[in-house]
């Protein structure tokens, strides 16, 4: 639908399942919710580069090094698309980064866990990118146009990452005994945090109702979490690895996998800042930003000089 639209009020757009675009009027609370969510998503992409970047210089083959480099680069690209989407709502990337650095905006808590072995790179690709896809595919139909369009590009690349992670783990699982053990240990450590990526259970989720009404969120946390479990269990079997949940069993009636209770106290602790890497991740990001300040200042000084010369 082009401009000017026939249907143009915010409520009409939402009711008609049309996209809200930057020039459309929108309630302040809708705008604020989107800024919060898109910023958190963008921050997650760039903080997520750190645990994977941790293995870039140590990747055990040149092919794996190339794949991981390309992946980490994709994540930086995702950050760029998302900050650009947030900018259409009137906030600059600089403001959002300042908020991240000041601890005023969050990023996905999953990245506050450390990558201890090479197998963690596979586990992140398979489970973390896998969970991200389940969360993000519905966002391709999000009511806010620029966010939805960014998600279409991001999701294509995330599914590539997920397959690469699976393939990495498959190789380890079918490799030497030590490699298999490394893969199993990584899955043991990343499984539960991946389930927590879908957020608190529905009855404890504060934002879900309004976001669903606005067409930002399409499915509840628990629905998406179940979808992820159902997708992942058969893949674990194909990998020859076990998921660390003794209560995992097929439920004929629901045509779904039942799974054990998630220890959300751990999630809340990590969200509050007490995870193994919270301080490290933020300090690393702040360091990059501060050490790069003179470079960014030089770039703008140079651009100004150039512009002045062109005028003269």
């Amino acid at each position: 639908m082009g401009y000017p639209r026939v249907v143009s009020t915010f409520d009409d757009l939402i009711a008609a399942n049309e996209r809200v675009e930057p020039r459309d009027e929108m309630p302040d609370a809708y705008r604020a919710t989107l800024v919060r969510q898109i910023a958190q998503h963008a921050h997650s992409e760039i903080i997520g580069m750190q645990p994977e970047g941790n293995w870039l210089t140590r990747a055990p083959s040149l092919r794996r090094k190339a794949i991981l480099l390309a992946k980490v680069q994709d994540e930086a690209g995702h950050g760029l698309y998302l900050y650009a989407a947030a900018e259409t709502l009137g906030v600059s990337r600089d403001e959002l980064l300042d908020a991240l650095h000041a601890g005023k905006q969050k990023y996905s808590s999953i990245f506050n866990y450390p990558t201890l072995t090479w197998a963690d790179i596979g586990a992140i690709g398979w489970l973390v990118d896998g969970a991200a896809i389940v969360n993000q595919v519905p966002l391709c139909r999000c009511s806010y146009g620029p966010y939805a369009r960014a998600m279409v590009r991001v999701c294509k690349e995330e599914s590539f990452h997920q397959r690469q992670g699976f393939e990495l783990l498959h190789t380890l699982s079918h490799g030497t005994e030590a490699q298999h053990a490394m893969a199993q240990d990584a899955v043991d450590r990343w499984w539960w945090p991946s389930l927590m990526m879908f957020g608190p259970p529905d009855d404890a989720s504060t934002h879900t109702g309004q976001s669903m009404a606005w067409g930002i969120k399409r499915f509840s946390n628990d629905t998406l979490r179940q979808r992820f479990v159902d997708m992942t269990v058969p893949q674990a079997e194909a990998l020859g690895l076990t998921l660390p949940d003794p209560e995992l069993r097929w439920n004929e009636e629901r045509s779904s996998w039942d799974f054990g209770e998630i220890d959300f106290t751990e999630l809340f602790e990590v969200v509050k800042g007490n995870g193994p890497c919270n301080a490290q991740r933020l300090a690393h990001r702040v360091r990059a930003h501060e050490e790069g300040a003179w470079v960014r200042e030089a770039a703008s000084a140079y651009a100004e000089k150039r512009a002045a010369r062109e005028v003269a």
Binding site: M49, E291, A293
Partner: peptide
């Protein structure tokens, strides 16, 4: 990587 002066 992750330490560059800006994301680009």
């Amino acid at each position: 990587i992750t330490l560059a002066p800006q994301l680009e």
